[in-house]
Design a protein around this nucleic acid. Structure first.
Lengths: 196, 196
DNA sequence: TTATTTTAACTAATGCATTTAGTTTGTCAA
DNA sequence: TTGACAAACTAAATGCATTAGTTAAAATAA
């Protein structure tokens, strides 16, 4: 009676990622996935090791795809131009694939080399772009973190509805990046608003 | 047979928030909560409208407590001093109450005036602090968003293990805020790294 | 071609969590 | 003292994830 379905792991993960993007990560259940694939729930266990492992797979997929997009955006650009292009690509990816992006945020309970490598690749890309800036090794790390935090913060606050006002979020990100780059480019000025 | 427990809604939410902070938001189940309160699961429905509504309550509690902490931190301070103090308080709160903070991030599916008000209060605080800066109305909104995104980004990436390198995260936040404030204080400089 | 192994489907059954309905018992106020 | 309400309870339904064991189809090897 078993049908001639012949699915493989990649197809299962891809279908799961589409559900997560379209209906939200919390709507991704084995029941929903099995229904979309037209198989019974237990059959999924031939391809994946349960729901939690599936979420990890989706996050890993998202992280790797994100790296591809960011690398492409940075190609042929330098300095703040490259950073702006990367930020734009980051934002577009997270908007287009909110489920994968959220899954990539999931904290790992054990050390996970594959996830760590995927994350480190993105960090390396940013460090490469930041090379021309006159930053100490320590400051370079701070700058990468600040850049990531700024973009991720915008993405995260937007997707959770944190921005209530009817002002364009893209424009806010552009402006905030501008201020951040300003400081990166011209460090060590006299503070004006520290004490009024 | 019913015991003389006499719980009320606030106690139930408080106990739930403690579980969420101590063991993670995903570990907050009605079973765990009922066990801690030494009542049966269905009795919880006398106080709260199910698990999802409970998560909302915890998020609202977190948002309001966060506002109190930030307001306290800003008292008696101005300009970037006030912003740094607020950032520090924000960070400390999110670290001390990760469950409540994460619950506050939960997207609302319907308009939720209570949550919106709690969020708007924090935004208003930041706008007040930013008054002395010479910013247009539009730029003030961008600055508030950038500030929130930067802090939330750091908090979020830290709690999800996004920072792999053994470099102090607090220090990275300080440095990133410094660059951001630099740009806020000295807008409109000539970009150096735009084209090398 | 035929035999064997592997893959991927299936059914059956268990356990846990959320939720609803209906019931009982203390507590407080009239 | 009595009556009403609040808050506990038991019983039961539903849905999801998971495991165990089984079967058929496809791929591979003789």
């Amino acid at each position: 009676m078993p049908k001639t379905h012949r699915l493989d792991r990649a197809q299962v993960v891809a279908a799961a990622a589409e559900i997560a993007d379209a209906r939200g990560l919390e709507a991704l259940t084995l029941a929903a996935l099995a229904q979309r694939l037209e198989i019974r729930i237990p059959s999924l266990y031939n391809h994946i090791d349960g729901l939690d492992a599936l979420r990890r797979e989706i996050g890993l997929l998202g992280l790797r795809d994100l790296d591809v997009q960011l690398t492409r955006a940075a190609a042929g650009r330098q300095g703040t131009d490259a950073l702006r292009a990367v930020a734009r690509a980051y934002f577009l990816y997270a908007r287009a694939h909110p489920g994968r992006y959220l899954a990539a945020q999931r904290p790992a309970r054990e050390p996970d080399p594959e996830l760590e490598t995927a994350g480190a690749n993105i960090v390396d890309l940013l460090r490469t772009i930041l090379k021309p800036f006159a930053l100490s090794a320590r400051d370079q790390i701070h700058a990468v973190r600040g850049f990531r935090a700024l973009i991720h913060g915008f993405v995260s606050l937007e997707t959770t509805g944190g921005f209530g006002l009817p002002v364009d979020v893209d424009h806010s990100l552009e402006r905030a990046l501008g201020w951040f780059f300003e400081g990166l480019d011209h460090p060590g000025r006299t503070p004006r608003n520290r004490t009024k």
